[in-house]
Structures are given as structure tokens and as C-alpha cells.
Design a binder for these strands. Structure first.
Lengths: 213, 213
DNA sequence: GTCTATACAGTGATAGAC
DNA sequence: GTCTATCACTGTATAGAC
């Protein structure tokens, strides 16, 4: 009797923690930290405020849990196994397209906005995010560039620097325009077009024998 | 008597509005919108809360006034008159260095953070900022690239695209690391080194006959 | 216009019953 | 663990005297 009640409550507790995190994620990413109240989160999650405080010590801890969780989702993103170091153009276009599609996804944009907006108040956010997102992407790009240089399809001396420059070319100004809400994902030239332009420029700088001319 | 008093008060009013704006700027840029109270702004400006509300209809209007004002300060920045379209490397290095120094200045970083953080709540911020900052810089770069292409020191077909790519190369990842508070202005390779690397890559892609080899 | 004082709403957080 | 009810506190905004 007490055991049954305990078991049911444990399951219920896990599920409620989940609803709280889901509601908090949605509201924080949408409206920022300061504009969201614990009351609103509790209401959206269908629980009482006291329940929220039973699971999370306070608003800041709940915020940290949400952001850390979202950052970790990026850690299990794509692999680079199927890239061909012998074919730089095709591989870079594929790498760049996945990179840019991730950057322009609504969740990633919202995460960027809130982290940049709150990194002053929560300094730890900066490093958590950097390691979960940008640094990891740069590492993958650098690994491919190193392999491609070894395979002879690229002429690269400083792979880390080249990786940063490739990432910068792909990102261009389009990410900023999206962050500022000047463009929606559909507007403007498509992702593929932007990436192709970036790959063109990158290969003119680092390609072994320019492909055209 | 009443006139003297009125005149003194007008002057005093203008000066108080100025103190309020200055205090609000400092606090908003430092802590964001939600974390700053009207009470704290009034205290920092040395006036009463009622005086703040006499000059600005509310917190949002005061915030908008501060941000619009900061954005306009960027509009009167540097000129491109002294650049030499015949010497692409030197001119691009100078252009890039001023661009990056501006981007990494504490005020610009704080402005970026708060605008990105609050653009969800204040959609107008995005366009105001874009026109005051990035768009203007891109226009200057594009104008120089066009002149350099005409002068024969660069091979450029789409000057707008090339300008975006140059800006992206210069900005690289260093702006993001600063925004995330992972680096201070002093850390890492100096601005000049970063810009030189960006100019190198840009000239390998767009230079008329690579300068080396 | 400017101040002091205050009304009012909404916040984060908790106590006690179940 | 979960709820209802409530706490103390802060921030927004206004009234009224000067």
C-alpha cells in the first residue's frame, strides 16, 4: 500500500521533472531568463510552484539545467565518417551544409540568443556552450582538412586556422541576420547556394590547382 | 523670478535626462534588460524614480532610447577616404584592423550581447542595429573592393558577396569567443595577426596573381 | 519638473496539510 | 512528492506637495 503509492509517485516524479524541464526549455528559449517566472513555468508544466522547487533549488539552477541539456544535444550530432578526403569540394559542401543548417535551426538560434544575452550573468554558460557547439564543429572540420591535406586534395599549413576560416566563410553574415530576426530560414539564397559560394572561395585559397581555369 | 526658476529648471532637466540616459546605458549594457530596475537607474543617476518617469514613458522606452543612441554612435565611425585601391593588401589590412578593433571593443560586445538577447522581445532592435553597424561596414568594404577591382588589384565578380566573405574571414571565431567571455581583448593572437591571416586567405582567393610564388 | 511617499501587482520562495 | 495558501520582497507607476 505504501509501497504502491511510493512507486507510483516515483514514476510520477520523473515524469513531472521532465514536464518541468520541457516547459522551462520552451519558455526560456522563447523569452529569455528574466522575462519568465517560476509561476509561469509551473503553470505550463501543469504542476505547482512548490513541485518545481522540490526538483530544482531555484530559478538559476533550473535555467542552468535547461541550457546544459540543450548544449549536450549538440554533442551527439553528426559524424564525419562518410567524407572523402580525396574529394575536397564535395566533402566540404556536405560538411558546410550540415553546419549551416544546424546554425540556422530555430532551436540553435534561440540558444545562441539566450546564451549571449545571459553570459554576463552566468559566466559558466560561455564555456559550456563553446565546448558543446563551436569547438566540436571546428575539431571536425580541422580533422577533415588534415586528412584532405594528407590526401593531397588541399594545400593547408595551419589546419586549425583554416578550419576557423572555413567555418567563418560558411557562416558569413547569414547567421547574424537570422539571429537579428531579419530573415527567416526560407528567405534569401538557400543554404546550398551560400555554402557553395563559401566552398568556392575556400578552394580558390587552399585548393591544389584551382578547379576552374 | 518665476522665469529664472523656469530657465534653471529647463537646463537642469536636460542635464538630468542626460544623467539618466548615461546611467541606463551603463547598467543595461552591463546587466541586460530584465536585471536592471528603474529604481537602480534612478539611484545611479542621482534622481528620483518619478523624474525618470517624467522623461521616459517606461522602462521599455528608456531601453529603446539607450540602444538607438548607441547604435547611432556607430554611424559616425570611420571613413574610407585614405585607402588606396591600387594596394589591396595594405588597404584590406587597415580596413580589417579597424573593423575588428571595433567589433572587439567592450561597448560593441556589450551591445551585441544585449541586442541579441532582447531582439525576441523588441523585434525592432534587429533592424536598427543591422543598419547602424553591419550593413554600413559591409557597404564600406564593398565600395573598396569595387574600386580595387576597377584598379586591377583584385579579381572580383560579385563585390557584395566578396565583402561578406571578407568580413566573415576577419571576424572569424574570435568575436564569438569574446562574446562568450572566453577571451579578453588582450588574450590570444593580436588583432593584427588575425587580420593578416584573413587578408592572406582573401588575397589567395581574389588577388590578381598571388603576391607570393 | 522635481521630490517624498505610497499604492499595487507580481516575483521567488516556503509552510503545512495530505 | 504534491498541493493550496501565503510570506516577504521588489519593481512599476502614480499622487500630491513644492
Amino acid at each position: 500500500m505504501m509501497i504502491e503509492r511510493g512507486a507510483r509517485n516515483e514514476a510520477s516524479a520523473a515524469s513531472k521533472a521532465e514536464s518541468i524541464l520541457a516547459a522551462a526549455k520552451r519558455m526560456f528559449l522563447e523569452s529569455g531568463f528574466g522575462a519568465v517566472s517560476m509561476d509561469a513555468i509551473a503553470r505550463a508544466a501543469g504542476v505547482s510552484k512548490a513541485t518545481v522547487y522540490a526538483h530544482f533549488a531555484g530559478k538559476e539552477e533550473l535555467f542552468g539545467a535547461v541550457i546544459a541539456r540543450e548544449c549536450e544535444r549538440y554533442l551527439s550530432e553528426f559524424s564525419t565518417g562518410e567524407l572523402d578526403p580525396g574529394n575536397a569540394r564535395t566533402s566540404l559542401a556536405m560538411l558546410g551544409r550540415r553546419f549551416l543548417e544546424l546554425l540556422l535551426s530555430p532551436d540553435a538560434l534561440a540558444l545562441h540568443r539566450i546564451i549571449l544575452g545571459e553570459v554576463g550573468r552566468f559566466p559558466a554558460l560561455g564555456e559550456v556552450f563553446w565546448r558543446a557547439g563551436p569547438e566540436r564543429n571546428l575539431g571536425q572540420i580541422e580533422a577533415f582538412l588534415t586528412a584532405a591535406a594528407r590526401a593531397g586534395s588541399l594545400e593547408i599549413t595551419d589546419a586549425r586556422l583554416a578550419a576557423e576560416q572555413f567555418a567563418a566563410l560558411v557562416r558569413g553574415e547569414v547567421q547574424l541576420r537570422h539571429l537579428l530576426r531579419l530573415e527567416q530560414n526560407a528567405d534569401g539564397p538557400g543554404v546550398a547556394t551560400l555554402v557553395d559560394a563559401a566552398v568556392d572561395t575556400f578552394l580558390r585559397a587552399f585548393g591544389r590547382r584551382g578547379p576552374q581555369r
